[in-house]
Amino acid sequence: MLIFMAILIGVLYSTGVYLMLRRNVVKLIFGLFLLGHAANLLIFTVGGLVRARPPLAAVGADAPPPDVADPLPQALVLTAIVIGFALTSFFAVLAKRVFLATGTDDTDALKSTES
């Protein structure tokens, strides 16, 4: 399982970077989105993959039994997903406004702030 997750995360990172290096603004957004997902999956995976042992304490017990799944990476990923969602939607709107203001979605044409 771990090896599949590692391959999947690697593919996500590389696809994200590849898309970001394209000239199209929309592909840039998709690339960033994939990078965020790769990071989320990375946190989830290195936090330890545990199958079917939820971190729940039995009624009356003080602590859950040992070897349960670590809940913290899930909380971190949940936070990161929410933030990532907000930023991606902002970026999508920004890309639309950039297109309206400049009339292009080619990042190579957006050079007027450089010189």
Binding site: L32, G36, A39, F91, L94, V98, L110, T113
Partner: peptide
């Protein structure tokens, strides 16, 4: 708009790297 596009992109890349590092 052009400045914002560059600023947002690079800062989001930085955030993604930060998040990976935290993981």
């Amino acid at each position: 708009m052009e400045g914002a596009l560059k600023y947002v992109t690079l800062n989001l890349v930085s955030s993604a790297i930060f998040l990976s590092a935290l993981g």
